[in-house]
Simulated assay, not measured.
Amino acid sequence: MNLALTTGSEFKQWAFVLGGNAFAVVLMGRAGMFFFKEEWGKLITCFTASVFVGATVYSPETVQAVIGAVWSKVSEA
Rank of each mutant, 00 (worst) to 15 (best):
M1W: 11
M1K: 11
N2E: 15
L3T: 15
A4M: 06
A4G: 10
L5R: 05
L5F: 10
L5E: 15
T7K: 14
G8N: 01
G8H: 01
G8R: 02
S9L: 13
F11G: 07
K12Y: 11
Q13N: 09
Q13L: 14
Q13V: 15
W14S: 09
A15C: 08
A15L: 13
V17F: 15
V17N: 05
V17Q: 11
L18I: 07
G19T: 03
G20C: 07
G20R: 02
G20T: 03
N21I: 10
F23W: 12
V25Y: 05
L27K: 06
R30Y: 12
R30L: 14
R30T: 10
A31F: 03
G32M: 10
G32E: 04
F34Q: 10
F36I: 05
F36R: 06
F36Q: 05
K37I: 15
K37D: 14
K37Y: 12
K37L: 15
E38R: 09
E38K: 13
E38W: 05
E39Q: 14
E39I: 04
E39V: 04
E39N: 07
W40F: 04
W40M: 06
G41W: 13
G41E: 15
G41T: 14
K42S: 12
K42D: 10
K42H: 09
L43V: 04
I44F: 14
I44D: 06
T45N: 09
T45D: 10
T45L: 12
T45P: 03
T45K: 08
T45V: 08
T48Q: 10
T48R: 04
T48L: 15
A49C: 14
S50G: 02
V53E: 04
V53W: 04
V53F: 08
A55L: 15
A55I: 09
A55M: 13
T56Y: 13
T56Q: 08
V57P: 01
V57H: 01
V57G: 01
S59T: 04
E61L: 13
E61F: 10
E61S: 14
E61A: 06
T62W: 02
T62F: 05
T62V: 11
T62C: 01
T62N: 01
V63P: 00
V63H: 00
V63G: 00
V63R: 00
Q64E: 06
A65Y: 04
A65P: 00
A65L: 05
V66L: 00
V66Q: 00
I67D: 00
I67W: 01
I67A: 03
G68S: 15
G68Y: 00
A69R: 03
A69I: 01
A69H: 05
A69P: 01
A69M: 05
A69C: 02
V70C: 00
V70K: 00
W71A: 13
W71C: 09
W71V: 11
W71E: 07
W71H: 12
V74N: 00
V74Q: 00
S75I: 07
S75T: 08
E76D: 13
E76P: 01
A77T: 08
A77N: 06
A77F: 15
